[in-house]
Structures are given as structure tokens and as C-alpha cells.
Design a protein around this nucleic acid. Structure first.
Length: 590
RNA sequence: GGACCUGUGGUGCAGUCUGGAGUGCACGCCGCCCUGUCAAGGCGGAGGUCGCGAGUUCAAAUCUCGUCAGGUCCGCCA
């Protein structure tokens, strides 16, 4: 418990206390101490004896009170007493301070307290709604105490890693200009310029590129980002990322900088330092795992059956690509579950989902499947051989265009085989060579997959005219156990290539000028080649803490509908304040 | 915008499918007893708009519809 650098180390002494409850041990026997903390629990034995478990963030110690007193749960106490060994037979092995107690106690009640609405130990599961409404009490509990301290260690390790690597911490504005691109922005009305707005940054993207033009060379920031999009277990309106950018570098340099930061953070949080991280191209990841954020802890990859079924008589397999996924032990899957998966496949654009329960009859492997009777003996044995499926397994197949087939099976793979994110080994993987464009919009124009300043792979520049969707980019993601931690790219610093990309995106010169004029203008005055990266600290810390939900590593998170149950935000503001801002609300329907 | 799950004394649950008196369990709270407990123990007690609103019914925590809140997910998140 006390191995954390933030825990007791001598720095915790104040004018009111000189040591932390949880840091006392047999070595302190005979020592006079002054402690401050909350009453975690009390055991009354009449007016002559009471035991009070005093709690601070470091832990709990038993204080013995002889004589009159009135202390209750969560009272805030200052206790002066002497550390002594517990009498024989009363040692508590379940407590780190269980060999000692504080005797001859003098109690000062610093604050009384009403009974808390829920128990503050870690034994009781409490509904999250009630925890959020009383977050200040929830914070007192060991879970959040631990998570927030892990988070602080991660932040410190990251700052130190970036500093070691020559990065300069620069703060960028929270009040920024609207630059409509990806996520919906939070707007802040201007008091001095009625009708005009600042926006809160979705990320410091443009600011950090300007810092590169400004010769900062290596920038980083533990930056708050705001996106007005629907919330999820791994997404809040506001989140924190390590944001970095460097000049005169390649992708490999950036990957190295970020890897070092993550390694140091992991070591600080968990004590285990990740080794070298795997790298695979986006194409390979999609082909093998059907996703650009593969969970490498999970067994099984997508298997290509196209060669076997390319000329199949089976109608269901009449497609350019046939992909398969083996679910070990999945033969017991119910028909209704299979129907649910089939619906999911159809909703993703597939014609259907073929399934084969692997059975054994008289020593021979075969299939229980509606499609089995359409298979030739050759196809049946080929499928068994290529998939290596054995009795009791389930084989799922999708025949379609490559992208649809891998998407569907990749989704099912991560859904069916999923593990809690903190379980097992930490599997980091860098995904590289993302497509520059991600499909076409309604008007048939390519969409930027990352952002429009992402540098294409040099060797793909010729494809712009012939096959823009095939153009790969110098963009890269870092993935941990199926969670996307962050992404980055080499930026375009040459005006001719930027024009090419804007033209492909259908962005006119005028639009580019309106949206990013200040950046393009800056680039006219000598932009160094630069590249950067950003990864989500909330997600990283959540995984380190074994939490499935980033709310567990945020002091004051919002609900899925974006409200704060403790403060009541968002809330109306006074009409006079609206006037100042030049705003008039729509009438609220009753 | 959509799908699904949850809502019962302060807390966590059971009861809901199969309607029959606010019934039960554990924790907490209050009072009394208790000098070695540690999730203390014993005795006694208080505490409820079964989220809210309609409907069906002789009768609704329970069935139906609507609604609110929380959660998980799809869409969304360059």
C-alpha cells in the first residue's frame, strides 16, 4: 500500500499532524504521534473503552479511547497518543497497522459529520448515480483514492519523460477560434463582440503546428480537449491527452518519443515496464483482426477461405472474399444468439452470416449447419483443415467485399471473445499506414480519415488522380488491449501537397482560407517538416487501474447525458448574464 | 435519433414472470447494556409516494401505455 511515491514519506507532516495513519508500524512503538483523519469505524465497549479506526488516504489505524467521548462515523478527528504494541492475541493480520495501536488518546473533534448516505469502505457496491451525486464522499473511498493517485503518477512520469526528451511544455488557449472540421464544438459567447463565439478546442492540433512554425522544435502539453459528442464508457465531453509535436522528425522519431512516455507511465502506474511494442500496418490489422484497434490478447484471427470457396457452387459464398472466424467452444451457441449475430452482420451491410457448429460423428468431424448440405466433401474438409477447427467449435463465415467481410467478423470477434480491458498482459501495438481517405461522402468526395494536414506516403502520391481511396498516409495509432489510446501523423508542410489534398477533399481555396487561413498563412513563412501524436490519458490510466470506465479515473465526471449530478450542470443562467452576452433563449416548451 | 438493461426505507438486495394488507434479508441509523474489539456483540426502536403519471382490475411494487433518471451499445466522436 505504501509503495507509491505519493504515500507516506515524511513530507506529510503538517502543523496539525506529524504522520499518516497507514504508515505507522511496529517501528513506531513508543512514539508520541499526532494524527488527523476520519472515523472509519468505531467499536464501543461502554463508557470505559472504545476503539476508533482512524482513516486518512494512507490507510487505517486503531485508536483506543478510555473514558467519555462522543465520536461517530466520519467525524474529523485530531488524535494525540502513543503508539504501542497490541496485547497478545489481539493482532489483526488483515490490517497493515494491525500489530500496533494508538493509546492514551486525546481526541479533538475538528468537525462533526452526519451519517454518510452510503458506506465509505470498498465492500459495498453503490449505485453510480448516488456515488456521482455525492462525489466528495465517493472520493474518500479507497477505489478513487487509489485511481487518482495512479493518475497523478502517470502525469508525473509523462512530464518527466517528455522533459528528458527535450520537449517544452507550452500551454495553448482554451478560448480558440471556430475551425469546423470533425467533432461538434462547444461554443463560448463573446461579451465584447455580441453574436461572435470562441470555441473550446477539440484538441490543440492547429496551435501545436503553429508552435512548430514558431521554432519551438519539440512541444508537449497535458492538454484538456472538449468535444460536444455523445458520451460513452470511454468518452467524456472533456478529456485529457498527452499532446506532442516535433520538428525535423520522421514517424519513427515520434513513435519513439511516445513509446518512451507510455513505457514510463506504465512503469510508474503498475511497476511493470512494457517492452518493445508491436507494429503492423492498417491493412494487416484489418485483414487479420477486422479492426484498426485489435485486441492482441484474444485468440484467433480472421482466416481467408477465398481460395477454397472462390468457385464454390454455394450461393452464400458467391463473393470476392470469404473470411472465417473460429470461436473455440462456440458450438453450444444458441440459435437465437446466432440470429442476433446474423442481424448484426446484416446491419453492417453483409448479406448474412454463415455458421458451422463443428461436430464429431463416428470419429469424423463434420458440421451442424443449414449450409452443410450444400458443401462438397472437398470443401468441407478444406474448411476444417484451413480453420483448424475442432469438435465443439463454431466457425463463422462472411462472404462479401473485403472491407465488409473483415468489418463484420472483426466486430463479432471483439464482441464474442472480449476480455475486461485490464485483464492479462498489456498488449500494445502501433498501427501504421492508415488510408488517407476514409470512403466517400454523399457527394462522392473522399473524406479525410485523420485530418486534412496528414502527409500521404510519398510513394502513393501518384495515386491521387487514379485511385485516391488507395492513398496511404503517414498516420499511426497506438492501441492497447483493443482500446485506441491515441493517434498522430506526419503533417504536410509543403504547399503543393496540401493543395493536392484539399483538391481531393473538395475543399476550395476560399474554404481553406476561411477555415485554416491563419495556419496556411503561417506556413508561407518557412514551415519545418513536423509530426506529432496525442494519446488519451483517461483511457491509459483506466486500463492501468483495471477500470472499464474512464469515470473511475476522473474526479468529477459527467453522466452519459452530459450532466453533473453533484453541481447540477448544465444549468440556466441569469437573464442579466444572457443580456451581457447578447443572447436570448428560445422559449422553453412546458 | 435508435436498441436494450436498471429504478422497492439511508445503502445493497429479494419479492414482479404467476396481481391479493409495504412482506423479507443484510448493512447503516437511533436508544440502552457491555473494559480488548477490529465487518465487535446483546436487547429494543425508528425509518417507505415500491422513480413519476395514466390505464386495466373488486384489488397493482407486480399487468399495459407514457414519462423521468442512471447505465451499456448503435449512430456520432476529422
Amino acid at each position: 500500500m505504501s509503495q507509491s511515491p505519493n504515500d507516506a514519506s515524511g513530507r506529510e507532516a503538517t502543523s496539525l499532524r506529524d504522520i499518516l495513519c497507514g504508515s505507522l508500524s511496529a517501528a513506531d512503538i513508543g512514539r508520541k504521534v499526532e494524527l488527523c483523519g476520519w472515523v472509519a469505524r468505531r467499536r464501543e465497549h461502554g463508557e470505559h473503552l472504545a476503539f476508533v479506526d482512524l482513516r486518512d488516504y494512507s490507510g487505517i489505524v486503531q485508536c483506543v479511547i478510555d473514558g467519555a467521548h462522543d465520536v461517530r462515523s466520519e467525524y474529523v478527528l485530531r488524535v494525540s497518543g502513543t503508539v504501542r504494541a497490541r496485547p497478545e492475541g489481539t493482532i489483526n493480520d488483515r490490517l497493515s497497522t494491525g500489530a500496533i495501536e494508538v493509546g492514551d488518546c486525546e481526541i479533538e473533534v475538528l468537525a462533526s459529520a452526519e451519517p454518510p448516505p452510503f458506506g465509505l469502505d470498498d465492500r459495498t457496491e453503490v449505485d453510480e448515480q448516488i456515488r456521482l451525486r455525492n462525489r466528495f464522499l465517493d472520493l474518500r473511498r479507497p477505489r478513487l483514492q487509489k485511481n487518482l493517485r495512479v493518475r497523478a503518477r502517470v502525469n508525473r512520469a509523462i512530464r518527466s519523460a517528455m522533459d528528458d526528451q527535450g520537449f517544452v511544455e507550452v500551454e495553448t488557449p482554451i478560448l480558440w477560434a471556430p475551425t469546423p472540421e470533425g467533432a461538434r464544438e462547444f461554443a463560448v459567447p463573446s461579451r465584447l463582440h455580441h453574436g461572435s463565439f470562441y470555441v473550446l478546442p477539440q484538441s490543440p492540433q492547429l496551435a501545436k503546428q503553429l508552435l512548430m512554425v514558431g521554432g519551438i522544435d519539440r512541444y508537449y502539453q497535458i492538454a484538456r480537449c472538449m468535444r460536444d459528442e455523445d458520451l460513452r464508457a470511454d468518452r467524456q465531453f472533456e478529456f485529457t491527452q498527452l499532446d506532442l509535436e516535433a520538428s525535423f522528425v520522421t514517424q519513427d522519431d515520434i513513435v519513439g518519443f511516445a513509446t518512451r512516455a507510455v513505457q514510463d507511465a506504465a512503469e510508474a502506474a503498475t511497476g511493470e515496464r512494457p517492452g518493445q511494442m508491436a507494429t503492423m500496418t492498417w491493412r494487416e490489422s484489418m485483414d487479420r483482426f477486422g479492426t484498426d484497434k485489435p485486441d492482441l490478447r484474444l485468440d484467433g484471427e480472421l482466416i481467408d477461405l477465398s481460395a477454397t470457396f472462390g468457385n464454390s457452387e454455394v450461393k452464400a459464398f458467391a463473393a470476392p472474399i470469404v473470411k472465417a472466424l473460429v470461436i473455440p467452444g462456440g458450438a453450444t451457441t444458441t440459435r437465437s444468439q446466432l440470429d442476433t449475430w446474423t442481424d448484426r452482420a446484416k446491419s453492417m451491410g453483409a448479406g448474412g452470416l454463415a455458421w458451422f457448429r463443428v461436430t464429431r460423428e463416428e470419429g469424423v468431424l463434420g458440421f451442424d449447419s443449414p449450409l452443410d448440405r450444400f458443401l462438397s466433401d472437398q470443401e468441407r474438409s478444406a474448411m476444417l483443415e484451413i480453420t483448424s477447427a475442432s469438435e465443439g467449435d463454431l466457425v463463422l463465415c462472411v462472404a462479401d467485399e473485403w472491407r465488409v467481410a473483415v468489418d463484420v467478423l472483426g466486430t463479432l470477434r471483439s464482441q464474442i471473445l472480449s476480455l475486461p480491458v485490464g485483464d492479462g498482459p498489456a498488449c500494445y501495438v502501433w498501427i501504421t499506414e492508415f488510408p488517407l481517405f476514409d470512403g466517400l461522402d454523399a457527394e462522392g468526395k473522399p473524406q479525410a480519415a485523420h485530418h486534412p494536414f496528414t502527409m500521404p506516403l510519398e510513394e502513393d502520391l501518384d495515386l491521387f488522380e487514379t485511385d485516391p481511396l488507395a492513398v496511404r498516409s503517414q498516420a499511426y495509432d497506438l492501441v492497447l488491449n483493443g482500446w485506441e489510446l491515441g493517434s498522430g501523423s506526419v503533417r504536410i508542410h509543403r504547399a503543393d501537397i496540401q493543395r493536392k489534398v484539399f483538391r481531393a477533399l473538395g475543399v476550395t481555396d476560399q474554404e481553406a482560407e476561411e477555415r485554416f487561413g491563419f495556419l496556411l498563412n503561417a506556413f508561407r513563412y518557412g514551415a519545418p517538416p513536423h509530426a506529432g501524436f496525442a494519446f488519451g490519458i483517461d483511457r491509459l490510466v483506466a486500463i492501468f487501474c483495471g477500470e472499464e470506465n474512464i469515470r473511475e479515473v476522473i474526479a468529477f465526471p459527467k453522466t452519459q447525458s452530459g450532466t453533473d449530478l453533484m453541481t447540477g450542470a448544465p444549468a440556466r443562467i441569469a437573464p442579466s448574464a444572457l443580456n451581457d452576452l447578447g443572447l436570448r433563449p428560445f422559449p422553453v416548451e412546458s
